[in-house]
Amino acid sequence: MPTLQDFQTERATWCPGCGDFGVLNAMQKAVINLGIEPDDIVVVSGIGCSGKMAQHFGAYGLHSLHGRSLPTAQAVKLANRKLTVFAAGGDGDGFGIGMGHFIHAIRRNIDITYIVMDNHIYGLTTGQASPTSDEGAKTKTSPYGTVEAPIAPLQLALAQNCGFVAQGFSGNIKQLTTLIEKAVLHKGFSFVNVFSPCVTFNKVNTYEFYKSHLVNLDEDPSYDPHDRVQALRRVAEAGNVVVGLIYEDPHRQSFEESLHGYPETPMVHNDLSLGEADYETILASFR
């Protein structure tokens, strides 16, 4: 069984206290709890502070382009279905430049887990407004406060019938670990949005803010995470400031299960050569 020791890499370069440490920690604990070897994991990240996840996680990594972790990760998974594949990014990466891929990854439903480190700010570029910045947030690019409405990631995912939607908080690693474990086990695309405070550039959406405002749906016995309409309502009522397993549809067919001809064995082991009979059949179609 793998241990935390097996994932050890160089010290992460995030600011001390950065929420992304918590996310890293929870992701590693989740795969250790599930007994997945680091050599069988690929973390595909985008660009930004969150993008460093591919390097810090300690598995195989693909640190891709800004906003493009999702298409890249989906193809890694299709190429080798035995791998556990994470796409990891931030709110700018995923809900700004990469937003189109998010909706389509939900539609396509390939069995990967998408972790978003949502800090409501562009951190690596030193503090500009992000797609999830609260309306009125004062940043370097919104000195009078943002006038654009924030993206509602959970509601978008729910509206598109994402098979697994969860939201966690870097300040609650235990819960986040459990959510990521469930996300990895879910067959199909799973989405975990994480409130991951930026301690340097966001003085509003802080650990203290979340600790005092978050509604924890996992602790509400009346909440049914299989009821999508209820999920939408509860997330909207809480103004998105909720954590827990928001929604899961365990029966939705994944892309791999549905696609005509998709092989049972990992594609990476395919025999690449065509035989004489193959050539003959194909050439005959041109005669």
């Binding site: 298409p71 890249t72 190429a79 396509r108 990476v268």
Partner: peptide, 30 residues
């Protein structure tokens, strides 16, 4: 599909090329 291959209609060409990169990274000619 007869040879264990996959065709993905991507949401745009940016996704398409990044998918090709992802698959190649994982060892599948794409």
């Amino acid at each position: 599909p007869k040879y264990g291959g996959v065709v993905i209609q991507a949401e745009d060409e940016i996704a398409a090329v990044n998918m090709a990169i992802g698959a190649n990274y994982a060892g599948v000619r794409a």
